[in-house]
Design a protein around this nucleic acid. Structure first.
Lengths: 163, 163
DNA sequence: GCTACTTAACCGTCCAGCCGGTACAGTAAC
DNA sequence: GTTACTGTACCGGCTGGACGGTTAAGTAGC
């Protein structure tokens, strides 16, 4: 689908130029398409960003699901490190790009609430599980901004040991 | 100093309108100053954002220092929750605003590296300390986007218990 | 000839930065 | 004590350029 290629181009752009660089013309050019062509698929810039966010959330939820681990926390943990190690994390630069309009972050807030609460009380050690999930969030954040300062393998082992 | 009032105005604006709302005219108006007056203090928009970031980093470093705890991790932990509970965290919406130009995030990356590495190997349990710091980062992130989904008191107790 | 898709040219808006101007507080020479 | 000069703080109109979005005119496949 051409739509996905356009979203890919937009993600690349965001990653190495920041939200400043995310203009319709730039996205179109990187995707090898004209501006009109881009607007054929997305009604406007807002729709483009919204689509990026929804794709990312869907993708990560699918990764969690695909782990079929014994607990949601374990699945979330594995998905997090898998995303980081397979470079999929780069895509999340979108978040920074969407920050221009707080309303666009609403779906993300909703997803975050799900990731941090889903099935928490049904797990063996809710408190520990919550901390592990928060630590994952932290790893994610650090990996986004300065990937080099953490030994991911060691941290993952440490977190698994806690559970 | 008038300079600080201008930075305050910019922070407020970023918080409730996103980076989109951060225009020189808007900042000036909120601070009760003309655009020319604003530009007298900051050579341009970039300088304004840079100043905001530097002020925030300095502020947080000062908070860590002020804890004079036995370990950096404990101080970092206490500073994090203090920042959240005193509402100081709201200021960090700047980060989203600065994302327009990745270069502006460089000082933040540097600070983050410091917060996650400083004195880590000299602490009793480096591995656990690192996880606690990462969890703090996660708490921070969650508090920024959806403050309501975490019981901060409980999480802080849990983290202190780990150390 | 209809649908899916693409193109280039164009418009209106918005904004950052510039610049000429104002007010005022020193201060120093006479 | 008044005049002339200087530096600091602040003002607001202007402009050039960039960007989002529109439109009218294609093109290719079926």
């Amino acid at each position: 689908m051409r739509r996905d290629e356009l979203l890919d181009a937009a993600e690349c752009l965001l990653e190495d130029q920041g939200s400043q660089g995310l203009t319709l013309a730039a996205v179109a050019e990187r995707a090898g398409v004209s501006k009109g062509g881009l607007l054929y698929h997305f009604s406007g810039k807002e729709a483009l960003i919204k689509a990026m966010i929804e794709r990312l959330i869907g993708e990560f939820d699918a990764m969690i699901e695909a782990q079929h681990e014994s607990t949601y926390t374990r699945a979330y943990l594995k998905a997090t490190f898998e995303a980081i190690e397979t470079g999929r994390l780069r895509r999340w630069a979108v978040v920074t790009g969407a920050a221009g309009d707080p309303a666009l972050l609403a779906p993300l807030r909703e997803a975050m609430a799900r990731w941090h609460r889903h099935g928490l009380d049904d797990e063996p050690h809710p408190q520990t599980s919550q901390i592990v999930r928060l630590a994952c969030e932290g790893v994610w954040e650090v990996a986004t901004h300065c990937p080099a300062i953490v030994d991911y393998g060691a941290v993952r082992q440490g977190l698994l040991a806690l559970l």
